[in-house]
Design a protein around this nucleic acid. Structure first.
Lengths: 231, 231
DNA sequence: GGCGGAAAGAGAGCAGTGCTCTCGGGATGA
DNA sequence: TCATCCCGAGAGCACTGCTCTCTTTCCGCC
């Protein structure tokens, strides 16, 4: 049962997040200002507080929306590759992360850059959408493993505390992979976002090493090797 | 010739950066406030503008100081390992980056996290100190390569634009390494900071995968392999 | 030793921020 | 029809960066 008032409210909420995204892209996360959003909305600043409890709540909204967008983009890219071609699926995942990050650098910074001062993301709202990419990556690895197409990596001894942590991943993701693969999976996961982050945040310097796209393909090839995805 | 006034000025400058570091650690980069620094300094806000042109200039000061601290820490850690033990040197480098980042998470976020809105780091002041770690990493690889202790990685074809970018690295760092090693070097460099960033920025979740230190050792082992540092 | 000039701090002021409060008008639902 | 409740307006508080002017203080030169 949606009353006209409900619909008007939903429209205004959408407007607010839309304008928020614009400001995020234009001025960055920490510069997100409710007053400015209100101005663009054509409304006085206090009125926005009818819809959003605080600036932090708006940040959380944009955070979740960002995770979902990234997850959707990666899902779509991976789904476009036949399920058996595990290595290509991994490449598609990586490329999707990179191109989404390049399209939405400010949102990417909100998700994976340093924390916004004075703002702590509420885990209960953000962990689920935030784990979509690593989950999918591990699913790709698991699919390859299930058909014997994953080279089991040689890793050093895995201590008990770490093994417990890996059990946490296994149960949270309902995925069955040997410890060695999980460890390498975490390495590859963090490395992937390290590479993307360096490019998006400009660590490669002004010339961006000449050809960042080609460089990224080499990253992916190396990381696929680390994960054990040969063919 | 340092007059008493000069010395007093230098002392005040030190005080300002010291207090700035404190605030950075306590409240984060984007929350750095000149007024708050002035209060802690026991002085009215306008007075600090006698020493620091703007908030951005203070940020740059802290940025350069951070890069230098990190560089010093890494240099010291690597120098403590015999020059021949290339793999151990690489491990020492990685561990030093991680432990410095964990000690100074806010400064780390300033250096490698998302950009502070409205602030663009002046490259001419920050590139030199900012490249100390990758330079040292490549020097380790070069030392291993020079004595034939580096496994040449098998990488895909390297196009011309990327090769030009790699030439830039070679000339900037005055280091002679084959393209393949350089490409892998960049992968390892970005991956290292990806792993450290994930841990420092809390991407591993509240339980931090049980044993982040052990996990990081596995990261390093995998990355040493990517770089070709076997023994 | 004294004095001119430079440096440094004080304080007011402007425009902006997040957020709270109260108030009035108007659509909504009984 | 009418009471209710929602929503926007506006004032206000405490904070921010930064600029300007004014006064004090100290330094170095003659």
């Amino acid at each position: 049962m949606t009353t006209p008032r409900d619909r008007a409210r939903a429209r205004t909420m959408d407007e607010i997040t839309r304008i928020g995204r614009e400001h995020l892209a234009l001025h960055g996360a920490a510069a997100l200002s409710l007053r400015a959003v209100a101005r663009d909305l054509g409304v006085v600043s206090s009125a926005v507080y009818r819809y959003v409890r605080s600036r932090d709540e708006l940040l959380t909204l944009l955070l979740v929306q960002g995770y979902d967008e990234l997850g959707d983009a990666v899902d779509a890219a991976v789904a476009a590759v036949p399920a058996r071609r595990h290595r290509e699926r991994f490449f598609a995942l990586g490329r999707a992360v990179r191109s989404w990050a390049l399209t939405e650098p400010a949102t990417y910074a909100l998700l994976f850059g340093g924390p916004v001062p004075g703002y702590a993301a509420p885990g209960e709202q953000t962990t689920a959408p935030g784990t979509r990419v690593p989950r999918l990556m591990l699913e790709i690895a698991a699919a390859a493993h299930a058909v014997g197409e994953l080279d089991l990596p040689q890793v050093g001894r895995i201590g008990k505390p770490l093994a417990t942590g890996l059990d946490g991943i296994r149960s949270q993701f309902e995925i069955d992979l040997p410890d060695a693969v999980l460890v390498r999976g975490v390495t590859v996961w963090s490395s992937l976002f390290g590479a993307v982050g360096f490019e998006v945040f400009g660590q490669y310097g002004p010339d961006r090493l000449g050809d960042p796209e080609a460089l990224f393909e080499h990253h992916l090839a190396a990381l696929a090797g680390v994960l054990g995805l040969a063919g």
